[in-house]
């Protein structure tokens, strides 16, 4: 048990993500599908977090609050997965190393429990990160 653990973060599609983006990114269902981090049960245990606990994920490039869930396509100890979307993109390595392609997969991150912090809606998260004034 620790206050935080370090894992290797990857991002990608899930079928729930696909359905959610087509049914409306302004809706809470988008957050349910993508505002999550899939973690191996052994990593959850190391962190001392229950399933469905909000956690804060921090990398060299930013941080984001998402809900920790048990890996659906595991086991993958040491690897965590956030479905592609604004939550993942708040922390992934944006460097393209002159290829044009950000490094969406393979970003070292720190995960800590953040029970009292909310997971923002997708559009809300991006607006907040960009400092957009919303009427």
């Amino acid at each position: 048990m620790a206050n935080s653990i370090s894992v290797n973060l990857i991002s990608g599609r899930t079928i729930q993500q696909g359905v959610a983006i087509e049914s409306g990114k302004e809706k809470p269902s988008y957050r349910t599908a993508c505002g999550i981090i899939e973690m191996d049960p052994s990593d959850l245990k190391k962190l001392g977090a229950w399933k469905s606990t909000n956690v804060k994920v921090t990398s060299d490039y930013g941080s984001v609050v998402v809900k920790a869930v048990e890996a659906t396509q595991g086991p993958h100890p040491g690897v965590a997965f956030i479905p592609m979307g604004p939550w993942a993109n708040s922390v992934i390595n944006p460097n393209t190393y002159s290829t044009g392609m950000p490094t969406f997969k393979g970003t070292p991150v720190k995960i800590e429990v953040a029970i009292n912090e909310p997971v923002l809606l997708g559009i809300e998260l991006v607006q907040k990160n960009c400092g957009v004034i919303v009427g």
Binding site: K25, P86, P94, G122, I123, C130
Partner: peptide, 26 residues
């Protein structure tokens, strides 16, 4: 807005911009 790293999305928010899309999106 959803699929670029946030550092790039900030570049969109700073300038004049048009988004042509049937959906509401980031």
């Amino acid at each position: 807005g959803a699929h670029f790293p946030i550092s790039a999305v900030k570049g969109i928010a700073k300038v004049d911009s048009v988004c042509i899309d049937p959906h509401m999106t980031p």
